[in-house]
Design a protein around this nucleic acid. Structure first.
Length: 770
DNA sequence: CAAAATTGGCGGG
DNA sequence: GGGTCAATGCCTA
């Protein structure tokens, strides 16, 4: 139960990246107005970003650190000279904090800087949609907030009005495309034709595509006219090269956000051709793709095209611009998706990421590599000039790194100031750590699991094979962490040590018997020829009633053979069917038992509801099965809740979010959230309390999660409660988190492989208390 | 021909 | 190993 709380003031983890920027903010303050086609007025810092990005794209200069000398090109960092002019780096890293409008700024860039600072030629469709545009304008004026990437308009979303007639629950709804979840593609399309808005139409197409029913060219504003716009044809050459289209890559979870934002921020009477490259029906025509203004897809789709098919259409297009949203996902150079990204052809390249460096300096390597910043796209140079010096604590190394980053990166945080005023104003946010004490039984079970784990890991230590058996070690740690949450999470049938090979074998057998028994057909025992009672499966994978087969073994003694295949069998090798017991435990409330952590959560929730029944909370865990467990007491106490995890498709997600964000009475007050589901980009501002049920390895993940409600549009102070079990792995995890954070801040996570290994082994020592 | 289940890559370290 | 996301084979309608 809960016993004491520690107040931790509103801290924010200072990202190591900021260190680089401490005194580097210099003349990136020039502003630029976006093209007329951008509907939403840009905030000051967004105009600054637009100006900076445009100048990066149009620059004719040599890339950073190159100088021309006597017809040779000389790099001031490497002291090497080459004959050929190094490729220009047109682009960079936009590393603004989340919530500052990276999406809007990028949209503005796409529309405003086609070639030579000229706007993208777009066709106008006169008349028709003016009213909606005016309405939008009015709506936006009322609100003072930031027209930001997640579609913040708080009370008066323009989209809300446009959609009011089609949305089923026509209440508040910030996140636009998701709301027609209920209208099927066909019916909605009809209604779109009859009257209202073009805007609705692409939403529908989007939904359809996500449901894998269809995907087709989706001009953002579907006017029938073929383009011929202000000059150049659709595939037509802008200044010199034929490239026109911008490719945007992003995680699935923010795909809808992008479409949404295009709609919100582009004037309704302008046609921007946006194609969603997603779903099994996506067009693989290179011509079609390169004729778009924007092609939107996910990293997964790209890499799956890249890996499977001999021909990946995306790799055949000459892009004008490639944008990596949440670009840090490509930080692992050996991952297929990273290679896929490097293989793209483009004139300009951008990385958007609030946290470009997640763990170590190494993360930067891939980013520079993508940008083709010579010579640092070559691993050896990178190591020699940057990585090694910096991790060795070389002052010049750090200086070079700073200069390097400065030249290609723009970063502002929520605390940055523009002309002495904060960029954005957010409500307070406070973090509490609530320590939980295990009950006696829980403690007993925990110690049991821990002893077993320690035995195994201890053996690895003696043999010096910790690293080779790292997977096992992790598994043990996971079990311990599960113990801290709820006993039923702990896998029962992998009690290690028991047998040599059998872990796997057992698993397979259990799978098989489960399959047989759940197949629906009433299987019968080959001995009694009746339906199975107390079914067991032999090592040779045949199923009998336990009494029947035991009788056979008893009578035949050591010679006992399987009646079906004559394999040797023993009583000890019979594997029981676990299914019923497990299902009984989790499915029905019958045998359900609580846990200390669940109790702690429930008492918080009940207290909260007493104080203010309208308060909404996020309940976050890394284990979806823990969320399953929590559902029961929630129901029991009459809480109305929704749920969001990675197994849900886009449609059900949208519904869950919409329900939760709805503020009408009777709407759900709790959302069960899987830590990584959706990752970034979600708007859960209806919640003002966050319960983090178990500590994450990566504090940044927790931070991101919290930021889903602590962002623009949040009107209340946000309270975060972290549950930590006393005297357990969880406390040790927190210790390690802290130590890591210090390391990162100090030396940029400098670790070479040797130290890294040792550090991990030490970590395991700490975790297992060996 | 569409929904559920399985398989595989990835990142967590 | 847990979880997520895409593709694939499978089954029912």
């Amino acid at each position: 139960m809960a016993n004491y709380k520690i107040f931790v003031t509103s801290y924010q983890l200072k990202n190591a990246f900021d260190k680089l920027f401490d005194d580097l903010m210099e003349d990136k303050t020039r502003e630029m107005e976006p093209a007329e086609a951008v509907f939403t007025p840009l905030l000051t810092h967004q105009k600054q970003a637009l100006s900076w990005m445009t100048s990066r794209e149009n620059s004719n200069d040599l890339p950073p650190f190159w100088e021309e000398k006597n017809g040779l090109y000389f790099n001031v960092l490497t002291n090497f000279a080459v004959k050929e002019r190094p490729e220009k780096v047109l682009g960079g890293i936009l590393a603004d904090d989340m919530g500052l409008g990276k999406t809007l700024t990028t949209i503005a860039l796409i529309v405003s800087n086609f070639h030579n600072g000229k706007p993208l030629p777009l066709e106008q469709c006169e008349g028709s949609s003016m009213p909606s545009a005016t309405r939008k304008k009015a709506a936006l004026k009322e609100k003072s907030g930031d027209p930001e990437e997640s579609g913040e308009p708080v009370g008066s979303s323009p989209l809300k009005r446009l959609h009011a007639n089609s949305a089923t629950a026509d209440t508040i709804d910030e996140d636009a495309p998701q709301k027609k979840a209920k209208t099927t593609k066909k019916t909605a399309k009809k209604s779109a034709n009859t009257k209202k808005g073009v805007v609705l139409l692409d939403d529908v197409d989007f939904a359809a595509a996500l449901e894998c029913t269809s995907s087709q060219a989706v001009p953002a504003k579907k006017s029938a006219k073929k383009s011929s716009g202000t000059g150049k044809g659709p595939s037509g050459a802008g200044g010199g090269s034929g490239a026109r289209a911008t490719l945007i890559l992003c995680p699935l979870s923010v795909l809808s956000n992008w479409l949404d934002q295009f709609e919100q921020h582009i004037r309704a009477d302008v046609t921007l051709k946006v194609y969603l490259y997603y779903g099994p029906e996506r067009s693989r025509s290179v011509g079609l793709l390169s004729g778009q203004d924007v092609v939107l897809t996910t990293y997964n789709v790209l890499s799956s095209d890249f890996g499977n098919k001999a021909s990946s259409p995306l790799h055949k297009v000459n892009w004008l611009r490639v944008v990596l949203d949440e670009g840090h996902v490509i930080r692992n150079p050996s991952a297929l998706q990273s290679k896929a990204v490097l293989g793209l052809q483009s004139e300009r390249r951008w990385i958007l990421s609030g946290t470009p460096i997640q763990n170590s300096l190494k993360d930067l390597y891939m980013l520079l590599s993508f940008l083709k910043l010579k010579p640092f796209d070559v691993k050896e140079w990178w190591n020699r000039i940057i990585q090694r010096p910096v991790t060795m604590g070389d002052r010049f190394g750090l200086k070079n790194l700073q200069a390097l980053v400065k030249g290609i990166t723009l970063r502002r945080t929520k605390n940055s100031k523009v002309a002495g005023r904060a960029l954005v104003q957010l409500p307070e946010r406070r973090v509490f750590v609530q320590h939980v004490t295990l009950s006696e039984e829980e403690r007993e079970e925990y110690e049991q699991v821990k002893r077993e784990g320690r035995d195994i890991v201890g053996r690895y230590f003696q043999e010096g094979t910790v690293m080779t058996n790292y997977a096992d070690v992790l598994a043990i740690l996971v079990r311990l962490r599960q113990c801290c949450c709820h006993p039923s999470l702990v896998g029962k049938y992998t009690v290690a040590g028991d047998l040599g090979t059998p872990g796997e074998l057992r698993e397979r057998l259990i799978n098989k018997i489960t399959l047989v028994l759940n197949s629906g057909s009433d299987e019968e025992c080959a001995i009694c020829l009746d339906s199975l009672r107390q079914p067991v499966i032999t090592y040779c994978a045949h199923v009998y009633c336990r009494p029947c087969i035991c009788e056979v073994i008893r009578s035949e003694k050591e010679q006992a053979k399987c009646p079906l295949c004559r394999a040797q069998i023993k009583t000890k090798e019979l594997v029981e069917y676990p299914g019923e017991e497990v299902e009984a435990r989790s499915a029905t409330g019958e045998n359900w038992q609580s846990s200390s952590k669940v109790d702690a959560l429930m008492s918080n929730l009940l207290k909260l509801r007493n104080e203010d029944p309208t308060v909404k909370s996020l309940v976050v865990s890394q284990f979806t099965r823990f969320l399953d467990v929590i559902e029961l007491p929630l129901r029991e106490y009459g809480f109305s809740f929704t749920r969001l995890d990675g197994s849900m498709n886009q449609k059900t997600r949208a519904k869950a979010i919409q329900d939760f964000q709805d503020s009408s009475p009777g709407s759900p007050t709790i959302m069960l959230l899987s830590l990584k589901a959706g990752g970034v980009g979600l708007n859960l501002t209806a919640a003002s309390h966050v319960f983090l049920m178990d500590p994450a390895w990566n504090p940044a993940a927790e931070d991101q999660c919290v930021d889903r409600c602590h962002r623009l549009g949040q009107s209340r102070d946000v309270v975060i409660t972290k549950f930590i079990v006393k005297d357990s792995v969880e406390e040790n995890m927190v210790k390690i988190q802290k130590k890591k954070q210090e390391l990162v801040e100090k030396a940029f996570g400098g670790k070479n492989t040797q130290n890294l290994k040792q550090a991990r082994i030490d970590e395991i020592r700490t975790l297992m208390e060996i």
